Simulated assay, not measured.
Amino acid sequence: MTNDSQTLANDAALDFLLSRRSRPFKTLIAPAPTRDELMSLLTAAARTPDHGKLEPWRFVVIEKAAMPRLAELTAQAGVRLGKSDEDITKGRAQFDLGQLAVVVVEVHKESEKVPAIEQSYSAGAACLALLNAALAAGWGANWLSGWASHDRIFCQQAFALQDNERVAGIVHIATQRATPPERPRPELSDLTTWMQE
């Protein structure tokens, strides 16, 4: 490592990333972040890589009082889509049990320089940045989606999404009741190719 690299190193941040672990949403309990606390996390999420400075994402904050409406809309969508009772129960659980969540909405913007797929990647990066910011701040957090978030009618009714928008992810943030055990991680030797020439 060069002297410049050592000067710029943030060992604490790297240690966090090497050990980060999402918290199952079912284990998240009150309290959730206040609006002021959440703004700090959203600020971190908005620093995600964004080719062309398009800002191809926005945030919809679901507070506790809004959760029952979304649970009911999920149930209605499940009936309309012919989902099983089990799928409906599972689909609405994130709202039945949710304390606070942030919907990261991908906003497709017309651009000659930035393809739609890169805008999708940026929205996904915003999800991960928000998740990691919440975990780094000491909150429990989990990035979910679920079948309802891919249904156009549900998304319009629930989050007022426009035709050029879709849900990239729903990040639940609250107090972690317990630290989950570590889970198996990928074998990097199976996933990594080294190019030497």
Rank of each mutant, 00 (worst) to 15 (best):
N3K: 14
N3E: 15
D4Q: 14
D4E: 15
D4M: 13
S5E: 15
T7M: 11
T7A: 15
T7R: 15
A9R: 13
A9E: 13
N10S: 12
D11Q: 14
A12W: 02
L17E: 12
L17V: 11
S19I: 08
S22E: 13
S22D: 08
R23Q: 09
P24A: 10
K26R: 12
K26E: 11
K26W: 03
T27L: 13
T27R: 05
I29N: 00
P31L: 08
A32T: 08
P33K: 01
T34L: 08
R35A: 14
D36G: 01
L38R: 04
M39A: 12
L42T: 06
T43A: 13
A44W: 00
A46F: 02
T48Y: 07
D50M: 10
D50Q: 10
H51D: 13
G52Q: 11
E55S: 15
W57R: 10
R58T: 13
R58A: 11
F59N: 10
V61W: 02
V61H: 04
I62M: 09
E63R: 06
K64E: 12
K64H: 14
K64N: 09
A65I: 03
A65S: 07
A65Q: 04
A66E: 14
L70P: 02
L73W: 00
L73E: 00
L73H: 02
A75G: 06
A75K: 04
Q76M: 05
Q76A: 11
A77N: 07
A77P: 05
G78N: 05
R80M: 09
L81T: 04
K83I: 02
S84T: 15
D85R: 04
D85P: 11
D87N: 09
T89F: 00
K90F: 01
G91K: 01
A93G: 01
A93N: 04
D96M: 00
G98Q: 01
L100K: 09
A101N: 05
V102A: 03
V103N: 05
V105H: 00
V105T: 05
V105C: 06
E110V: 15
E112W: 11
V114S: 07
P115K: 12
E118Q: 14
A123W: 06
A123K: 10
A123V: 10
A125W: 07
L128W: 07
L128R: 08
A129T: 11
L130C: 08
L130M: 08
L131V: 06
N132L: 14
A134E: 05
A137K: 03
G138M: 03
G138P: 06
N142K: 06
N142E: 14
N142R: 07
G146W: 02
G146S: 05
A148R: 03
D151K: 03
R152K: 13
C155I: 09
Q157A: 13
A158E: 01
A160F: 01
L161S: 03
Q162W: 04
A168D: 08
I170N: 02
I170K: 02
H172W: 07
I173K: 05
T175F: 08
Q176R: 13
R177N: 13
T179P: 05
S189W: 00
S189L: 08
S189C: 03
L191P: 00
T193W: 03
W194S: 08
M195A: 13
Q196T: 15
E197S: 12
E197G: 14
